[in-house]
């Protein structure tokens, strides 16, 4: 869990060219002023790192802080398990 959070913050800092030391779980996403193209790169890197598909504009995800992002990725990883067991991609 903590490892996933660290990896996500590493990705956000790297892709959005932000100071990693200033990122914490309670950091608000809007405060980071991430540009749309950087956001696309962040999502792509998250998908690569965790082998998940991040759905587009899914309103069931409330994304306000980095912690929400970590929770969202955990949910995607959890939802992936039954599919993987069924032999799907």
């Amino acid at each position: 869990m903590a490892e996933i959070a660290e990896k996500i913050m590493d990705i956000v800092a790297r892709e959005a060219k932000l100071d990693r030391a200033k990122l914490a779980l309670d950091t608000r996403l809007d405060a980071l002023k991430i540009e749309s193209l950087d956001l696309v790169q962040i999502l792509f890197a998250i998908e690569d790192e965790f082998d998940v598909y991040v759905p587009y504009n899914d309103e069931s995800y409330k994304l306000e802080t980095l912690s929400d992002v970590v929770n969202g990725v955990n949910r995607l990883i959890a939802e992936k398990q039954p599919e993987a067991a069924a032999g799907q991609n």
Partner: peptide
């Protein structure tokens, strides 16, 4: 990968549009 495609339908100018 650019994340502009809607998964369900094209709903221009509508609330709930996804791309």
């Amino acid at each position: 990968a650019l994340r502009v495609l809607a998964p369900d339908a094209c709903r221009p100018f509508s609330g709930g549009r996804k791309g």
